[in-house]
Amino acid sequence: MSEYLVLIYESEAAWEKADEETSNRVMTGHNEFGAHNGAALRGGNALQPTMSATSLRRDSSGKLVVTDGAFAETKEALGGYYVIEAADLDEAIAIASQVPAEFGGVEVRPIRVFH
């Protein structure tokens, strides 16, 4: 078995316009996802929007530079994640395909194991 991180990337602009009915539908979707995949789920969270993000970098002299916003500006931003356990990528894709992400999609990444 391997662990995979399922990153949920969605358009924040679309989310801002979403009504309550949409929010409820998505929340129900996540609850159903959790109920169906409890055995594989190792964790997961929703994130606050990127307007709340703070990025830290070091400049060429090694000085810490703190900036407002997400690390990379993209149309679809990381909005939440799940950690799942699966036998292989096919199984991970089968699980990840059930994650609600109507304003974007998900990315599946194997979690690296250090021996």
Binding site: A87, L89, D90, A92, V108, P110, R112
Partner: peptide
């Protein structure tokens, strides 16, 4: 990719 993602 086959190796790290465990493509079956």
């Amino acid at each position: 990719k086959i190796k790290t993602s465990h493509i079956p």
